[in-house]
Write a protein that binds this DNA or RNA. Structure first.
Length: 568
RNA sequence: GCGCCUGUAGCUCAACAGGAUAGAGCAACAGCCUUCUAAGCUGUAGGUUGCAGGUUCGAGCCCUGCCAGGCGCGCCA
């Protein structure tokens, strides 16, 4: 319907502007007015034309209305305020759409993924395999997963991908930490250095490794070989834990991609060679960082990628002083690999502390593929964990940081997911453990789920009393005339647009706020109108209405990965 | 010092692509359960949208400058 209206207006505009060959008709964009008095749809097209045509917006709106050919469903269109065109539809036309919603069911609002759908790679979480995920990772995980679902729902072919940083010095630290604990468990006296990972999980891994391997033969091994063995097994153990924790909030990846595999297969060095042959690499020195005190700064000649030619601030090193590739070098190889795997679009979800990294990766991809803004990066801001309003002290060094798993176990997956999803990623998020645990109005997730459960309670009650909605075609929706009913209908019809907008802007939180507003409209309706009454016709119409509401709430929560209990 | 993000009601956040009277929840106050789930609803109060300029028919949103908070700033990832 919206499209039909927009087309009608667009056609009218073209006609009007025939006398102005140099004028370009603005794209018609209809909105749903906040206030019912402003009709079902509103268009502001007359306003931007005011200057161009040297007429008042009201006059222009009038000339548009004079030529426009509306679809049958339009009952009235008038000019209001500073030049809005407000369109009113036959109430029954809107309500008829309830039937289509119920018929479509789970697929209402969704676009099917076709064979030629755009291939999107969505990389998120990518927490280091050196320890458990913390709450900040959890936010990125939830946001990434929901965004993947949103994109999938609008017809994109989405792959969820996790990049395992299983290379570099941190892995050596991990191997060393575990080995020290193994020695300790065997009764040796060890000194546990500051830089090592202190957590209890390290001891647990050490214990498991001692069960699998003969300690004495390990001590007899060459140190490098032992470190490699302990390291890779520790990574495997940590990844198993991470996957398990992710599964606990309903997140599964299509692919876990190993950084180490890029080094092992020679793809990183191949990539560096390729860049060299293209002349965007040189040997040079970087100026010392400004504003930050670097005590032992030494100017060193390094292999540098001329990212400044592609929009970055300074050139970036591809190799460390010892000649091994930097993380950056591997990451370029990784993103280039995604490109070669045929993804038309890449989206990365990173923590805000990686913000300074965006321009260099995009610069590298521009150099390699000529494409701008790839990957598209979502920077997720920090989570401040509180309990009863007081900050929860976290220290990674002391091993006292709160893990994502602990939070999920304490407050539940639904509460964690929904709370992480109700805010834009750009804003920092305060997450209070006590508030998230409460099953009351402080907790938006229950508010929405409660609406769904309540709808089901009513439908059960209706059936118990012998009411049958019957064939959709027989339901007379013209009796749904109250303010609350019309609001609900309008809201339901806005769902596909809301989903599309969330996808276009990579803002999954919109689906959450949509669900909350819909739930609010439903609760309001519930208190003013009875569904099950003596009036058979009205009862059937309202059963259809709330069934459609329940369906849309369910669809929205499905996208967000939040459960929809039938009873609460 | 430079770059990115943020600043909206006492608190946590919205405001759909620059549109109509800036909205919700919590907290406060006053009401609503012998009728489909009170994990809910209705009402009252609460605002110089950090500050100052600018752009235009119109600015919370765009531009400039300040102020405040967060993140980052070579060979960690």
């Amino acid at each position: 319907m919206k499209q039909a209206l927009e087309q009608a207006l667009q056609a009218a505009l073209e006609e009007l502007l025939q006398d102005h060959p140099d004028a370009i008709a603005p794209e018609v964009h209809l909105t749903r007015p906040k206030m019912k008095e402003h009709g079902d749809y509103a268009a502001n097209v007359a306003m931007p034309l005011a200057r161009l045509l040297k007429k008042s917006p009201q006059q222009i709106a009038a000339s548009i209305l004079a030529v426009v050919q509306w679809p049958d469903a339009v009952v009235a269109a008038d000019i209001a305020g500073p030049g809005f065109i407000n369109i009113r539809l036959h109430q029954a036309t809107e309500a008829e759409a309830l039937k289509a919603i119920v018929l479509a069911g789970e697929s209402y609002g969704k676009i099917a993924v076709t064979a030629d759908a755009e291939k999107v790679n969505l990389e998120f979480v990518s927490a280091n395999p050196t320890g458990p995920m913390h709450v900040g990772h959890g936010r990125g995980a939830v946001v990434g997963d929901a965004l993947a679902s949103v994109l999938n729902a609008v017809g994109k072919n989405v792959q969820r991908e996790y990049y395992i940083n299983d290379a570099g010095v941190q892995i050596g630290v991990l191997a060393n930490s575990v080995w020290l604990r193994m020695q300790e468990l065997e009764g040796e006296t060890i000194e546990f250095p500051d830089g090592a990972y202190p957590g209890e999980y390290i001891v647990q891994i050490a214990r498991e490794l001692l069960e699998k391997h003969n300690y004495v033969s390990l001590t007899e091994m060459d140190e490098e070989a032992r470190s490699a063995l302990v390291g890779s097994e520790s990574i495997a153990a940590n990844m198993a834990m991470i996957r398990d924790d992710l599964a606990a909030i309903g997140i599964n990846f299509d692919l876990y991609f190993s950084e180490q595999s890029l080094h092992a297969s020679g793809r990183v060095s191949e990539l560096i060679e390729r860049l060299q042959s293209e002349g965007v690499v040189y040997s040079g020195t970087l100026p010392p960082p400004k504003g930050k005190e670097v005590e032992d700064y030494k100017s060193v000649e390094q292999l540098l990628f001329r990212t400044t030619d592609f929009g970055d601030d300074v050139d970036r090193p591809l190799a460390k002083q010892d000649g091994t590739p930097t993380y950056f070098a591997a990451d370029i190889a990784y993103h280039y690999d995604k490109h070669q795997r045929g993804f038309e679009r890449m989206i990365d979800v990173w923590g805000a502390d990686h913000g300074g990294y965006v321009s260099r990766v995009q610069a590298a991809m521009k150099a390699l593929t000529g494409r701008e803004r790839q990957p598209d990066v979502l920077l997720v801001q920090m989570v401040n964990l509180t309990r009863d309003g007081k900050p929860v002290k976290m220290s990674k060094r002391a091993g006292t940081f709160v893990t994502l798993r602990e939070v999920v176990d304490e407050v539940g997956a639904d509460a964690v997911r929904f709370n992480f999803m109700t805010r834009r990623v750009e804003s920092q998020l305060d997450f209070d453990l006590e508030a998230a645990k409460q099953k009351n109005d402080e907790n938006p997730v229950y508010y929405v789920q409660y609406a769904y459960a309540r709808i089901n309670a009513i439908l059960r009650k209706a059936e118990d009393e012998g009411h049958v909605m019957g064939e959709l075609g027989d339901v007379d929706v013209s009796v749904l005339t109250s303010h609350e009913e019309q609001r609900l209908v309008a809201h339901l019809l806005a769902y596909p647009d809301a989903l599309q907008k969330a996808a276009d802007r990579l803002e999954a939180y919109r689906v959450a706020t949509f669900a909350m507003r819909l739930a609010a409209d439903f609760h309001s309706f519930y208190h003013k109108n009875r569904v099950v009454t003596e009036d058979v016709v009205l009862t059937r119409a309202r059963m259809l209405l709330i069934k459609a509401v329940g369906q849309v709430i369910r669809n929205a929560l499905n996208v967000l990965g939040v459960s929809t209990p039938e009873r609460m």
